[in-house]
């Protein structure tokens, strides 16, 4: 806020002062709204976790990943069991006999204070058992069990993906909102305030100039009047002198009206 430099380029008029005041008010309202939104979002994250947000997020994702690791390990091991029981590679056959996806996901959109969060939801299609006969001769049970284990692994994967996507998006939105809050708080509001201050000072300046000018005008008028009065007086005195010469001849009636010789009152 480098003083007067940081203000908007407006003419310091009363109209623009009005505009600026309206703008400041708008900025303050917006600031409080955005602030509340940001809080709402962090609270949304707080719904999942209890206290320290950042710590909780990492902890939760960490947890999900660890679970993932465990499940994947079990799954990989069940594959080892299959290769032990079948005594060969069944991968190709499984690949080729799978026709349609058994494990599918739906995406939903969650609306959290105006932010659309995708949520993945997994489900199994019923009656889809493409390679149900794999390992019919031997190892069939292990194949089926392995399939179930891997289905669980994929489920965990989907859960993790859902969590992480939500977090990434939420994080992005929170960042944007916080940036806006900060921008309004630290840039727009001070600048508007500065502008208002500037307009005010300019207007005051103008007022002072105007006052000074009026004063000058009044002074001048006074002086002019005084000069005019003096002239008038001089003229009158001259006239009086002329008249007094004449009144010395007929002072009788004149005495009644003007017993005393007082000056004219000039206002």
């Amino acid at each position: 806020m480098s003083g007067a430099a940081d203000r908007e380029a407006v003419f310091p008029t009363r109209q623009s002062l009005g505009i600026m005041k309206a703008k400041l008010k708008g900025a303050e309202t917006g600031h409080s709204l955005l602030k509340r939104k940001s809080e709402a979002l962090t609270n949304r994250r707080r719904l999942h976790h209890t206290t320290n947000i950042a710590l909780e997020i990492t902890r939760r994702i960490d947890e999900a990943k660890r679970k993932m690791g465990r499940v994947m390990q079990i799954a990989a091991f069940s594959l080892a069991e299959v290769s032990y029981a079948v005594g060969g590679d069944i991968g190709y056959q499984v690949q080729e006999s799978a026709k349609s996806a058994r494990f599918r996901i739906r995406t939903k959109q969650d609306n959290v204070s105006g932010v659309l969060l995708p949520a993945f939801e997994s489900y199994l299609t019923e009656g889809n058992n493409d390679f149900g006969l794999t390992g019919l001769g031997k190892g069939g049970q292990q194949v089926q069990r392995c399939r179930e284990t891997y289905a669980r692994a994929v489920e965990a994967l989907v859960e993790l993906a859902s969590l992480q996507t939500a977090f990434v998006i939420l994080d992005e939105v929170i960042k944007v909102v916080n940036r806006r809050v900060n921008a309004i708080e630290h840039v727009i509001i001070p600048r508007t305030e500065n502008t208002i201050k500037y307009i005010n000072s300019e207007l005051d300046e103008l007022d002072r100039e105007e006052f000074y000018r009026l004063k000058k005008v009044a002074n001048k008028k006074q002086r002019d009047n005084a000069a005019a009065d003096a002239e008038m007086k001089a003229r009158r005195e001259a006239m009086e002198k002329n008249e007094s010469g004449a009144s010395k001849q007929d002072s009788g009636p004149a005495d009644i009206l003007a017993a005393e010789d007082d000056d004219d009152v000039i206002f």
């Binding site: 058992n129 149900g132 006969l133 390992g135 019919l136 001769g137 069939g140 049970q141």
Partner: peptide, 12 residues
């Protein structure tokens, strides 16, 4: 025996 066990629950 294996075929029998493994065919439970399939279209066989």
């Amino acid at each position: 025996i294996n075929i029998t066990l493994n065919s439970f629950g399939t279209e066989l």
